[in-house]
């Protein structure tokens, strides 16, 4: 089980958290202006990298807040966790 460092609460076991998928996806401000392909890319296409991945987690059974994390998908080691709104480290 992973130990995840919540930026508000500190290190807690993975069971307290919910995974939120790829981070830093920005909802297009004017969806109506997008082509079908652009909208599909926003909804469905993911980087799915082999290596460092910026992703969202939510401390569901703790403070309840979302935060972002950088994790290596080849080792599952967290390089960093950071608050929503902060830049990728």
């Amino acid at each position: 089980m992973l130990l995840i460092d919540c930026p508000w609460c500190g290190k807690r076991p993975e069971l307290e958290f919910a995974y939120g998928g790829q981070a830093h996806l920005v909802r297009p401000p004017r969806p109506a202006e997008l082509s079908d392909q652009q909208w599909a890319d926003y909804l469905y296409v993911r980087i799915n990298p082999r290596g460092l991945h910026a992703e969202r987690w939510r401390h569901t059974h703790g403070c309840g807040r979302f935060f972002n994390a950088l994790r290596d998908t080849t080792t599952d080691h967290f390089a960093a966790t950071y608050k929503i709104g902060e830049d990728k480290r």
């Binding site: 089980m1 993975e14 919910a18 995974y19 082999r50 991945h53 080849t74 599952d76």
Partner: peptide, 13 residues
Amino acid sequence: DAYTSYTQRGALH
């Protein structure tokens, strides 16, 4: 497991 990974292993829970 809940998260994306290429490790070919997962958690016991």
